[in-house]
Amino acid sequence: MKQGVIWRTLYRLASPQLFYRTSGRCLPWLTVVTCLLFAYGLLGALVLAPPDYQQGDAFRIIYLHVPAAFLSLSIYTTMAFCAVLSLVWRIKLADLVLKNAAPLGAWITLLALVSGSVWGKPMWGTYWIWDARLTSELLLLFLYLGVIALNRALGTRVQANRALAIVVLIGFVDIPIIHYSVQWWNTLHQGASLSLLAKPKIAPSMLYPLLAMIAAFMGFFVTSLLARVRTDLLWVEKRSKWVTALVRE
């Protein structure tokens, strides 16, 4: 009984018009919250947080590297979730979300890789090393680029959506590999400073700005994704009355 209600709400939210209207109402708020989080996060990252006892001010790269790395995994997980919705429930909105998340994921993964590389030079003594963490994260960038290229090549047919969803799901194997790489193998990359269960290995004065930056990056992703999906939705639904009315306004 209760399950029925959940499914019905989900299906209704997946209706294009309702999604367009609801997301349109949320977007201004999300934008404001994201901007506030960035304002506090950046102030904390560059000014409020003290320099690290070993790394000095170079450690401030963490405020971009960790949020970007975290988001690079979250975006792919979102895509994999959409791929299941698309394959099993044939929800059209899921295909649009999947396609629009891929370029965002690629940019954020690039930021994670470059920021880590620039951080590695003064601390480790090298820009790049083929250890398990770095290699699997680079593979993630190629997965995103592959999804983008495949989407461009296949077009908008129903079969194309299915192929894309399958490729995304196969690539999802890389996500746990990235996460656990530092535990399963010897790597140059250190273990996680933040995890859900353990006490953070980072002092509170440094931690709060980091949490704010992670939230800000998430806010950026959700805002951008919603805005992009809305754009695609208008184009896909251009024959329907509500889009006609909206554009003519």
């Binding site: 690290d52 006892y53 250190q190 290995k201 980072i202 002092a203």
Partner: peptide, 8 residues
């Protein structure tokens, strides 16, 4: 190699 600890 550096560890996962950061502190002032």
């Amino acid at each position: 190699k550096h560890d996962a600890n950061y502190m002032p």
